[in-house]
Design a binder for these strands. Structure first.
Length: 215
DNA sequence: AACTTAATAT
DNA sequence: TATATTAAGT
């Protein structure tokens, strides 16, 4: 009983993760744990992808990462040797889907970075990644509200030029490009790309790249 | 310690 | 532009 849309979301393959390390397993463990500590208040449903579909985002592990691989620890200096920091995360439509699904399924009470990160079950995804994105996501939602509400404190006619209708985040993708942020996608097209603003490159398989290894 | 928000940096 | 990082307050 897995919705087709979710299935498509999962069809993303780890693909070109051929760097060096094997980074995928430990998913069920995390999941099982999450299952039982689902919080006392029990956020109604549980995201379907919970049933074993770990995603992996590529990237070199920054020094001090909690992955005790222990091998070629680079010298304390000389960043030109090899990776020094994580690559910037690219929020692909697939990742967004997961994010939105999780946020939608948790109450707003529980939709906090740590929990979201855990439920998304994307290896390599950090709490900071989620926090940063959540901040932006909330700003997006705020834009869309305020459509018709009380405007007692704003006597002047100040109709905010919103071009997008308020939308339930459940099962939807508020992302997009253009105006400068998330925007809404109206229908499900067959195109898997172009849903996400600013990203006109290949979608499904082009996962996070190291954009600038420097710094 | 984790969360939120704003500001700022890359 | 999108994402990361920092600061400051809860």
């Amino acid at each position: 009983m897995i919705p087709p849309d979710l299935a498509s979301a999962f069809s993303v393959t780890p693909a070109a993760s051929r760097t060096v390390h094997d980074v995928y397993r430990a998913s069920h463990a995390t999941l099982s744990n999450l299952r039982r500590l689902s919080s006392p208040v029990a956020p109604t449903p549980l995201p379907s992808f919970a049933d074993g579909d770990p995603l992996v985002i590529e990237g070199d592990e920054p020094p001090g990462s909690s992955k005790p691989e222990g091998a070629e620890t680079e010298a304390s200096e000389d960043p030109s040797t090899r990776s020094s920091k994580r690559a910037r995360l690219v929020w692909t439509p697939q990742l967004h889907r997961r994010f939105v699904d999780v946020v939608g399924h948790l109450g707003i009470k529980n939709a906090v970075p740590k929990t979201i990160m855990q439920l998304m079950n994307v290896e390599g995804l950090t709490r900071e990644n989620v926090a940063s994105h959540l901040q932006k996501y909330r700003l997006y939602l705020k834009r869309n509200e305020g459509s018709d509400h009380l405007f007692a404190s704003t006597p002047v006619s100040n109709p905010p030029p919103r071009q997008m209708v308020p939308v339930s985040i459940i099962g939807y993708n508020p992302y997009g490009g253009g105006g400068g942020g998330f925007h809404e996608h109206q229908h499900q097209h067959q195109h898997q790309q172009g849903e996400w603003s600013g990203n006109m490159f290949d979608s499904v398989n082009s996962y996070p790249r190291h954009v600038h290894p420097s710094q």
